[in-house]
Design a binder for these strands. Structure first.
Lengths: 384, 384
DNA sequence: TTTGTTAGTAAAGCGCCTTAACGAGCCCTC
DNA sequence: GAGGGCTCGTTAAGGCGCTTTACTAACAAA
């Protein structure tokens, strides 16, 4: 699809940035409006040109023109007339061909296994694969990822519009990994390396950020939300006022290593009492090991309170609408979540806590794979 | 200035919003690029057309055209040739006429006194006034503000491009006050009311948010920063990745009523141990009353630690680059700030705390007045 | 004086959206 | 069942905005 590269800029949409930054050309206008149309088709399903015009407040003429381009690219198709909607000429439904293109995604969040998939544009898995990492790291790991991605691309049954990767570590907007200690990566331009080698646009982002994106797009997350991912470690990704948060050094979301217990357990990071020492999946399992049901619930509630105390300032400062917990439901979705919720309610003003939902994430194990697809959808088509 | 209204849309600049929202027209392109040029002139001072073209990556032709428009509006002026810069025809410097227009701002953060000023476009005060509020509230207070603003507008020595107001309470993007208990305001469209009555564009925002804006533009704040305002109460405004944060219910920044002391002092909000009960200026003064220097320092350090513990999760989650304290320096800029800084460093991972500056705000008492001017600059000229 | 370089302007062209106008196709009513 | 009215989608013309190309103006250096 030759157009995907030209559509790259379409991810940029009108926002409310304070300091103006880059010039805008007429073609950016086009890309933006094209994304607007695709966005609507993606989320609302097949729609007539006239309805698209009403929804986007563009004119029918412009919408027709945009649709013609999308038809030529094979991104949308006509689905026949929509009869019996009252007077007037019946409308021709236009729908996105979500099966006509595919996305390859890779989840590197696990230390030992890399998981990958070929997905449709709606995030449905067509192919899944996984591969043992065998302690590989550094450049060796990069070429392993490349081979893995190549195999996935080969097994796609439709043209692939891009590759999305969720990886641990601090990763900036360009897909450069600043540091990922477990993978022995420092200052590695992973996205551009793989883009060159694979000959396809590759997007790379932090796994927790990617999980947040997945929940945002496929899980129905709100415009201001925090996703806490609990696994080997603890991470977080956040969307504020409809934008992903990067932070001053692209390290936003690093909640796992905030101190939450004074003189607590020693953490892998060298300090004591980090959130990760109480909330990571292994830590939680250790905590409830051998306990009966009630005692385990109480132990999990204790951690929930700690989480609530930690989140209260964040929720207040950002006036978050949703906090999602992503990870093993048997550990998180019970007394832990309840305790966290009540603790947050106790410790924040009603105006803030009243509008807050603290719930489990909806996508579970596939969050990162689905989220990585959103990365590609956003970059290539302007859809999210 | 008839053009100011047409320039209203220019505040919208290219960002990285996830979900595309509004259509873009060719004239938005123009407004954006116009703002880009003004932005450069505002921050970098007089510049030649050719240099502006290089800085914005627009062509000289486009820049010339934009400058012609701005010259016609009287927003910029030619400042003579710039000689001796090497070979070639010498450049003509173009500068913003920051004295040719003025901004009226009002600070309502104090319960008892409203403060106002007429400012140049660079935030320098030309006229100052204040007015006792005399327990007025509700509609009465609105008309008092209107009269006060009218007097300020009358005392301006140049055309006024707009009115900016910083007020307490939850205020949304449109300048509607959702609630401000002390002022007995609920769901009051203050900005549009005053815009109609005064016949000038009026911007209204939360006082802490406005303070953050002021520090961002005039105080040299970074792209990801939090400003904690300490006065009668405690508030906060934040800028994340170069955008103001609004939150799900426009209540972002309400840090004053996060619980920070278990079973602490009763707060005006009805709950116990809110940050405001230890960090507000009155609370701090009460705490150190009658203590000698060392004991007072220790007492302030104690509050600093509490602040540090509260901010650590926020700083980690957002990877903030700067935290600014705005308020009485005698209370804040000593052991309190030191303790907060070390506490944050202790409780966050080095990657986060290393890049963090926790410093005093630079604008002090005039933050809100200056920030309200930024509100107007942003809305009318696209400058921030 | 000539040459080379840079600043600013003018003309032509292309992209993108809008308004205006039209044929196509269907419902409803007379 | 014929015509009016409505909606859908397209075509044509026009305005706006930026770019490329080409030009003149003004200066330094050779």
């Amino acid at each position: 699809m030759s157009s995907t590269t030209s559509a790259g800029a379409s991810r940029r949409t009108l926002g409310s940035g304070l300091r103006a930054t880059a010039k805008v050309l007429p073609e950016h206008t086009r890309a933006h409006n094209r994304a607007l149309v695709l966005q609507h088709l993606f989320h609302e399903g097949p729609t007539s040109r006239a309805d698209l015009a009403r929804a986007t407040s563009l004119t029918r003429v412009t919408v027709s023109d945009l649709i013609n381009g999308l038809l030529a690219e094979g991104l949308v198709e006509e689905l026949g007339v929509q009869r019996g909607r009252g007077v007037g000429k019946p409308a021709i439904l236009v729908g996105m061909r979500t099966d006509a293109y595919q996305i390859v995604t890779v989840d590197l969040s696990d230390d030992t296994v890399m998981r990958g998939a070929v997905l449709t544009l709606t995030g449905e898995a067509v192919v899944r694969r996984s591969l043992s990492v065998h302690d590989r790291s550094g450049d060796e790991l990069v070429s392993l990822i490349e081979r893995f991605a190549r195999r996935l691309i080969a097994s796609a049954t439709q043209p692939v519009i891009g590759v999305g990767i969720g990886a641990p570590g601090v990763i900036d907007e360009s897909g450069r990994v600043h540091e990922a200690p477990n993978r022995k990566w420092t200052d590695l331009p992973l996205a551009s390396l793989l883009t060159d080698h694979l000959g396809l646009p590759v997007q790379v982002a932090n796994d927790a950020d990617v999980a947040a994106l997945g929940e945002y797009t496929f899980g129905g997350g709100g415009d201001s939300m925090l996703v806490v991912t609990v696994g080997q470690g603890v991470g977080a990704g956040l969307v504020v006022d409809g934008s992903r948060v990067w932070g001053a050094n692209s390290a936003a979301g690093e909640l796992g290593h905030v101190t939450v217990v004074d003189d607590g357990e020693l953490c892998a990071c060298g300090r004591r009492g980090c959130l990760e020492t109480v909330l990571s999946a292994p830590a939680l399992r250790r905590r409830i090991e051998g306990l009966d049901r009630d005692a385990a619930d109480a132990a999990l509630a204790h951690v929930g309170r700690i989480l609530g105390i930690t989140l209260a300032p964040v929720i207040s400062a950002l006036n978050l609408g949703e906090v999602l917990l992503s990870g093993p439901a048997d550990l998180l979705d019970g007394s832990l979540r309840d305790a966290a919720q009540t603790t947050v309610a106790e410790r924040t003003m009603p105006a803030v806590s009243a509008g807050l939902r603290l719930r489990m994430a909806t996508l579970d194990e596939d969050v990162v794979l689905a989220g990585a697809a959103v990365l590609v959808l956003g970059a290539q088509l302007g859809v999210s």
